[in-house]
């Protein structure tokens, strides 16, 4: 009997699957739910950022760019299409200014123009 059951284990598995509900997620027909810890788009707390450039130094993918003229005049930019979504900038920032949100980065038709200005400070 045991042997018989084992012989037809795949058949019983598909019959079981037929009676179970499909395991497919609702997206895109239902709204998208992403887990809390997912590393998505990069956001910044402009009050905390001082433009020190630690995040840019440690970024492995060249996804962050800092144009710095002086202490008070800088522009921090993020290229979602070059980002490795590794979270290193979050670790490197001493003030906890930069972090990943759990929002999905949307697909685009032109990656080179996809630049998010995180913080722009004019002197």
């Amino acid at each position: 009997m045991e042997k018989f059951k084992k012989r037809f284990s795949l058949l019983s598995a598909i019959i079981q699957a037929w009676f179970d509900k499909p395991e497919t997620v609702g997206y895109p027909f239902l709204p998208l739910v992403l887990p809390e810890g997912f590393r998505g788009a990069i956001v910044i707390d402009p009050d905390k950022c001082t433009g020190c450039g630690l995040c840019v130094r440690d970024c492995p993918a060249g996804g962050l760019r800092l144009e710095k003229k002086s202490r008070d005049e800088f522009k921090l930019m993020h290229h979602p299409a070059s980002c490795a979504y590794c979270g290193q900038c979050e670790r490197s920032c001493l003030r906890g200014a930069i972090s990943h949100s759990n929002a999905l980065v949307a697909a685009t038709t032109d990656a080179r123009e996809l630049v998010v200005v995180l913080k722009e400070k004019q002197g």
Partner: peptide, 26 residues
């Protein structure tokens, strides 16, 4: 069929890893 069933169970492993680290694959 076995491919689908095995990969379906693999998703649960990915879920666990994601709940630890926030990344499914990396």
């Amino acid at each position: 069929t076995i491919f689908m069933h095995a990969w379906h169970d693999r998703e649960l492993v990915l879920d666990i890893m994601e709940s630890i680290s926030g990344g499914r694959v990396s």
